[in-house]
Amino acid sequence: MLGAALLVATLGASARPFERPLEGPSSPDELLPVAEAFSLLPIEREGDTLHLSWNIAPGYYLYRQRIRVEALAPSPLGLRAIRLPQGIAHVDEHFGAVQIYRGLLDADVPTTGAFDRPLRLRVTYQGCADAGVCYPPQTVVQTIGP
């Protein structure tokens, strides 16, 4: 009896039994962690070209305009502009004409100069889910060996 009274007193002191569960189609239980929604595979090098690939989970998309690749440290290897495929055209009320990617995305970054030491690359990208949420810009650093 005393135990039950203590239990009730403890619950009553700091919790209320009326919070509503999350609503809507964007329940957090259904959303993937960002790393699984937009999975950047290890960057590969073929000759003078770096090859980047993303696996974009069904129901998620990346914005073309928000993909960037930069060399982190000074390197004799120069990076040219990233070559992205044509995306899916979309006119957004707020962002105007944009392109998005779904499914598998492959991109190339041509390089110039000698590739004689490890290269650290910073890759930034940002996307959303069809469920009506967006993930913050993601930054991934990968090192590619010579």
């Binding site: 209320r16 999350l22 949420v133």
Partner: peptide
Amino acid sequence: FIVERHLGGM
């Protein structure tokens, strides 16, 4: 006390 939490657009 938190009475509602909503993830996604309303």
